[in-house]
Design a protein around this nucleic acid. Structure first.
Lengths: 234, 234
DNA sequence: GCAAAAGTGTTTCCCCTACACCCATGG
DNA sequence: CCATGGGTGTAGGGGAAACACTTTTGC
């Protein structure tokens, strides 16, 4: 270990952190990944996973991925910047500017992890989220709005569903996001006519009724159509 | 003046700046506001206006507005966060995280200011922008993309046009953003049927032919329709 | 055979598109 | 009176919306 040292500047400096809003989908509901804070400000309260960036050594996105892996072990997911929050009093200690990220993971890909992790990360249904530390309530609200808006015109839903999924599940996700019901036939027709889903000729198993056909998102088909000026919309 | 002092921390800290991409519209072209750098890194080169935040004293948006007023004198404009750029090597001196903002101003509202200002801010047509300092090229590219995209589904165009404008000018702006031609009759019909433009019963002056009718964006009508679930699209 | 969900076609209506001519004004 | 842009209506086609019944499977 290096000897403890300090860093001196001519002006006061802000701290910079990244915070991640990680969404997961569980058959019927959206969930967010929350941690329980183990340290001083807001100790014991729920918060978004995140932490300080390594100054001079990593980009913001790298920092977000690093923090997320350290705290939750997850890898391979959609990650995009959400926005930056920097009110001087958002952290009671000193001025902390946080760059919020927005992640979509397939819950099914990552072992259940019964919540018994280093800093106990746990999934929380989106409509049962408690009051969060710092301004994380606000960040979460922005993320939610962004997710719901973006699902309509970008194929983000496929980042939440398992790789193989029945159309019904996709429809459920879209109904959740739009807050309304969707006509089954029109939905299927529209989605299939996009030509971005691959029919796997497989069916669900372990269901107590007729098993549904499984599909997979065909990313290269999506990219090809996008290049040709088409754009996704649901 | 206080005596010069220094600030000491247990960890290295990044600097945080704000940079603004300010768009203006000039009858036929989009312009960006650029400054010429008067200081060391990239001295003499064009750059986006911006500067350091006042740690512990202001929010990010306040910082953006302050910098913009200091450097250009403009006030009252649409401002929104664009994104944050924090690669450790984006500034050759040390790690600087910059929060980029995106502003739309009515060029007509602000005196021409023949470029002879403190740090010489000047309008530059969007397709004649030189190579910029730092990663400002990248920031500008993101801003452009965002502007073009957002004009379609948010009434941002009215923040660029003068308060009173003929429909032709609105159409030109949309043609610029979409990169294509638009049918005059369909455009007018669609825009007027939205019910968010107020017909001023006035006409242009000083034109060498039939004078066009002037309109004004009716913000409260827009908000009312939005509340009722309608959404703007062009 | 029944409960439970999967899967499928057709018609209607509206909105977007394409398109060409007359009008007002200044010079 | 002519040049320049302002302003208007209509017909046709395509995609979204509405809507009900048959099929498969496990129990």
């Amino acid at each position: 270990m290096g000897t403890p040292r300090t860093y001196t500047y001519d002006y006061p400096m802000p701290a910079v952190t990244v915070d991640c809003v990680v969404f997961g989908w569980d058959d019927n509901d959206l969930h967010v990944l929350l941690i329980e804070r183990g340290e001083k400000p807001y100790e014991g309260q729920a918060a978004l996973p995140g932490g300080f960036i390594q100054v001079g050594r990593e980009s913001l996105e790298q920092a977000a991925r690093r923090e997320l892996e350290e705290e939750t072990g997850i890898r391979n997911y959609h990650l995009e910047q959400l926005g930056t929050f920097g009110n001087p009093d958002r952290d009671p200690r000193y001025h902390v500017v946080t760059v919020a990220y927005f992640a979509l993971v397939r819950k099914s890909d990552h072992r259940p992890r019964g919540g018994t992790d280093a800093r106990s990360a746990a999934w929380c249904p989106l409509d049962e989220v408690p009051s969060l530390a710092f301004d994380h309530d606000e960040i979460l609200a922005v993320a939610k709005k962004r997710l719901y808006g973006k699902l309509r015109y970008k194929p983000l839903g496929f980042q939440l569903l398992p790789r193989k999924f029945p159309l019904r599940d996709l429809q459920r996700l879209y109904e959740t996001a739009s807050g309304g019901e969707v006509d089954k036939r029109n939905f299927r027709k529209k989605v299939l006519e996009m030509g971005i889903l691959e029919d796997l000729n497989e069916t669900e198993s372990d269901v107590a009724h007729r098993a549904a056909r499984l599909y997979r998102f065909n990313e290269s088909a999506y990219r090809k159509r996008s290049r040709d000026g088409w754009h996704f919309e649901l």
